[in-house]
């Protein structure tokens, strides 16, 4: 695990948000964080499968191990495959006056928030995020839809830099 992988530098802020341009990838540690989360979520199901199999021993029409096998297989897909897909599907673009966040494997969502409409900004880190030194940047707007736009999986340093940049922008425009 590359916890101390070199931080992506803040992208050139002069670039305009372009619908067709390449998205900036999130921090590689985000994929690992997603895996850890998926593992933690899967554990109860695997334990449940073992308990069920144990309880049904001898009475179940299925041969021993089928239930555990299926659950473990699904858990492996959930832990190994899905985080990579989700990581690849996510991305963002930041320009001088707006942030674009793209996410979703099946249900794609592509949101743009102009800095001039940001009410306040959060940088959050859960325990797993802290271990991997990543953070979630949240922009709050006054709109009912997209009241909070989340951008997870940024390097912590980058997230705080982005926050400062967006905040400076808000201040400049309000003066």
């Amino acid at each position: 695990m590359e916890i101390n992988a070199s931080e992506p530098i803040v992208p050139a802020a002069s670039a305009l948000v372009d619908d067709d341009a390449e998205l900036t990838q999130l921090h590689p540690n985000y994929r690992s964080a997603l895996r850890v989360q998926a593992t933690l979520t899967s554990i109860p199901f695997i334990i449940g499968a073992f308990v069920l199999e144990g309880a049904l021993q001898g009475e179940s029409p299925l041969p021993f191990g089928v239930l555990i096998g299926v659950v473990v297989f699904l858990a492996l897909v959930f832990i190994i495959r899905l985080p990579s897909r989700r990581y690849a599907a996510r991305g963002y673009q930041i320009s001088t006056d707006r942030l674009r966040v793209v996410r979703g494997i099946l249900w794609r969502s592509d949101t743009v928030v102009p800095f001039g409409r940001v009410q306040h900004i959060d940088v959050d880190q859960g325990p797993i995020d802290r271990f991997f030194d990543i953070a979630t940047l949240t922009l709050h707007t006054a709109g009912s839809h997209n009241a909070s736009v989340y951008l997870p999986g940024l390097g912590h340093e980058l997230a705080t830099e982005m926050r400062e940049e967006i905040r400076a922008h808000i201040k400049r425009e309000s003066m």
Binding site: L106, W107, R108, S109, D110, T111, V112, V113, P114, R117, T141, A142, G143, S144, H145, N146, A147, V149
Partner: peptide, 26 residues
């Protein structure tokens, strides 16, 4: 308006259309 989102479900992606959500206060 406060934000703009282009959202697509699997069918919409396959068929090339989208829903545009605009962030409106209230």
């Amino acid at each position: 308006l406060h934000s703009a989102e282009v959202a697509q479900g699997p069918i919409a992606r396959w068929r090339g259309y989208a829903t545009l959500h605009l962030g409106l206060a209230g």
